[in-house]
Design a protein around this nucleic acid. Sequence first.
DNA 1: AAATGTATTTTGATTAGTCAAAATGCAAGT
DNA 2: ACTTGCATTTTGACTAATCAAAATACATTT
Lengths: 221, 221
Amino acid sequence: MATSTVENYLKATLLHEQECDGIVPMGALVEALGVVPGTVTTMVKAMATQGLLEHESRQGVRLTPIGRALALGVLRKHRLVETFLVQTLKMDWSEVHEEAEALEHAVSNRVLERIDEFLGRPTADPHGDPIPDATGTIADTAAQVTLQGSAINKALRVTRILDQTPDFLAYVQETGLKPGAWVKVVRRDETSGVVHCEMKTGQKITLGLPVAAKIVVGALV
Amino acid sequence: MATSTVENYLKATLLHEQECDGIVPMGALVEALGVVPGTVTTMVKAMATQGLLEHESRQGVRLTPIGRALALGVLRKHRLVETFLVQTLKMDWSEVHEEAEALEHAVSNRVLERIDEFLGRPTADPHGDPIPDATGTIADTAAQVTLQGSAINKALRVTRILDQTPDFLAYVQETGLKPGAWVKVVRRDETSGVVHCEMKTGQKITLGLPVAAKIVVGALV
DNA sequence: AAATGTATTTTGATTAGTCAAAATGCAAGT
DNA sequence: ACTTGCATTTTGACTAATCAAAATACATTT
């Protein structure tokens, strides 16, 4: 069985492979895992000999099929646990990330299956992030529309928050821009770099463009 | 923060101090933790310098006040988690021990408090073992009556199972001698070493004396 | 009192994961 | 092409936890 450290390296690699078209640079893992570069090199080499990663020297790493399967399993645990903590134990939406970070390595598949069933097999966690199913299939996440690029004056629903830092989550919480919330972009001004939004309550919110890019929206449904 | 290994040593010491009047021999820890004797000596010395245990050479160990507080915290996590797995997630009563063994080191006090509240602050886990409260106070467990020494022909209630091995739990499950069950001792024969019991259903069960000593009973209430 | 047997401790080695700091390779800019 | 700067790798060392096997202490029996 993979140690928690190995699971963390796999998960970090998985979470970075989109934005790095496949090969994840060592620096990304250094940053994500909070260790010094030399440690990543050592770990990555060890994991490569175990067949979990491919290591291209001075380039970065790629997940092997086995590594990806394990990483998806960890991600599934993380996101189901987060959902459970929020929905069942009524924990604060913005404080569950670190809790899940610890629990994802201790929850067995047996317990996970019970949690999944208990929650009614959800497909997204409280942040709107897709939850891989038991076979490791995850909803396609490419081509998502954010408040940075959405239609104007159209009623939308927030579906996902792309930044999980406590500060940002607290801000989202405060403004009500949480997954599920009704929102409309009333004006987008590229020159001044801001997006003007309106909530169902009539409340008006102004966001900078890079911040707007962190709020994924979809059709009302 | 204590590592899971340290937490396991502390918990094992706590669980053995009753039956060893205070000083727990090294061999008990060897057995409980499944390591070789030399490992226990090394760990115990390290923990003694950290102020968690007192080590009397060639005698055994004693918990310090700090060590006991930590051990009670771990025991509380273990038993609340077990209760949660059975009551909320409907897991099998006899399979939750090992799950709790892993989760007890990953559940934060914040999560534990939510679980405790969610469950309505239970005072005993599914096996009837008392759950320490948040201040580390645990119900007195001495002077418990078991089927080995109980009154004859008196309606009793099973309150606790003192053996948590999967085999024994499966047996208890099968016979229905679970905590909460109605039971009556119809005859006890010291010579042949057996106890004859009767369940509410009229079903008759015969137990050997050492086995009867593992089933704690109390008044019906 | 000597011998025996068992529990415990010591010693030396191993594995996983880490850091510090020096060495190396590579891409860009001049 | 040369240099500069940054990312990565190497090297040597450290901690936590473990085992194997030899050494030691102690209680019990003879």
